[in-house]
Amino acid sequence: MARKLARGMGSFFKDCGCTKPTRCPHPYSIRFRDALGKQREESGYDTQDDAIERLIQLYAEKKTTTPTVAAARRELGQLTVEEYAKQWRPRQRKMTEYSTGEAVDSSINVHIVPRLGSRKLNSVTPMVVERFLDEMESDGVGRGNQVNIFRVLKTVLRDAYAKGAMADDPVKGVQEPAYVRGTVAIPSRVYVTKALAVAGEDLSLEIVVMAGCGLRNGEARAVNINNVVAQDVYRVHEQIHSNTLRPAKLKHRKTGEFREVPLPRSVREAIERYAAKHGTTNDGYLLRGPGGYFTEGMERRRVKKLFSDLPPEGGVGMYGFRHYFASNALGGGIPITDVAEWMGHKSIEETYRTYRHLLPGSITKAARILDAGLWEAA
């Protein structure tokens, strides 16, 4: 039996059929009329106080909300997550096709829509979001990706909440997935030499520029004879995008920006040998396939064969050759500030977090060096 509050505030009740409902563990439900006069119900309140507090909140909102606004909010809340995400995405004008925007689109289309796309906005609660995170974990989505996907979902839902699609914050209390950066797997010099011997000519050139110049995979695929701007300098200003398979701007950089990296003699000679043997495109690119460039699919097949032909070494993958560059540079005493710039990291903190264990210095060594420049104790 529903217990009524002041007129117009609605009522709270238990619908469990227990003989002593005030003492049973079942949750309370509430019944009320919204700003349009339509009767609605909500459930899941642990105590009478929780139910009454919610009714008071709804009553206050109804008093301050015009019927027109209430109708608009109700209509918005009936949209599905997929429908709202499609409306939300074009409004994000600061995103670009080849950087943040591409990652956001992937999060929405590959992860959010398949799991939550058909759910109406006004039915999304923190528990729904928690289950979404649990599903990603069960499906083996990496923790780093989980963090990025959750941040996209949180932004979309908070935008809908701000516009009145939900009565309560749908991500309130939901904790971001914990992500702990693992130690990078760095191949030995012997392993790099074996990889170059086993890989075909195209993949070998990619390995050379990654290990020798610190390029990312996509940047290595865009290797260009015209980027050799001096005997010992290579200019990096684009990558082959993994989705479009076309040249695109660099990660963490605006269109037209570039960075210059050291070009070891052996790397320059490898580029020149490849160009002399295979030629280049009219605009200087070396690695190319049927579509004109060294594509993601081509690389994936070649990489899979490469690591099946090589003996395993501590979880080393293709990105390990870029890590080798960092190891070689820091092990040789090159300042980490220079290494961060050459690798194109967003900040030196990223470089330090990833490679701090490679720094040749130590507290003990620092103490000896500092002591040499100090005076003798009396």
Rank of each mutant, 00 (worst) to 15 (best):
95 M>A: 07
216 R>P: 06
363 I>D: 15
173 G>K: 06
9 M>D: 09
19 T>Q: 11
189 R>L: 11
279 G>N: 04
198 V>C: 02
319 Y>N: 12
171 V>C: 08
147 V>S: 00
27 P>Q: 13
277 K>Q: 12
341 E>R: 15
12 F>E: 15
25 P>V: 03
99 S>M: 06
311 P>S: 13
207 I>R: 07
161 Y>K: 01
316 V>S: 04
283 D>G: 02
230 A>Y: 02
49 D>F: 00
345 H>S: 03
91 R>G: 14
188 S>T: 15
173 G>F: 00
100 T>A: 00
346 K>C: 01
350 E>Q: 07
332 G>V: 14
189 R>V: 15
141 V>C: 10
260 E>K: 07
189 R>C: 11
328 N>K: 14
27 P>I: 11
113 V>F: 03
143 R>H: 08
190 V>G: 13
202 D>S: 10
299 E>K: 12
287 L>I: 11
235 R>P: 08
296 E>L: 08
317 G>Q: 12
298 M>W: 10
100 T>N: 01
14 K>G: 14
329 A>P: 11
209 V>Q: 04
59 Y>A: 13
199 A>R: 03
166 M>S: 10
93 R>F: 09
142 G>L: 11
306 L>F: 09
275 A>L: 10
31 R>L: 04
176 E>M: 10
270 A>Y: 12
105 D>E: 13
338 D>H: 09
197 A>M: 01
274 Y>C: 12
246 R>W: 02
289 G>Y: 06
239 Q>L: 03
250 L>S: 07
337 T>E: 09
87 Q>V: 05
172 K>D: 06
91 R>F: 11
373 G>H: 05
58 L>E: 03
254 K>L: 04
149 I>P: 14
314 G>Y: 12
181 R>L: 07
302 R>S: 11
74 R>F: 01
297 G>C: 11
368 R>K: 07
293 Y>E: 04
278 H>W: 13
44 G>W: 14
146 Q>G: 08
232 D>Y: 06
122 N>F: 00
158 R>P: 05
288 R>I: 01
83 E>V: 00
262 P>Q: 05
237 H>C: 13
107 S>D: 15
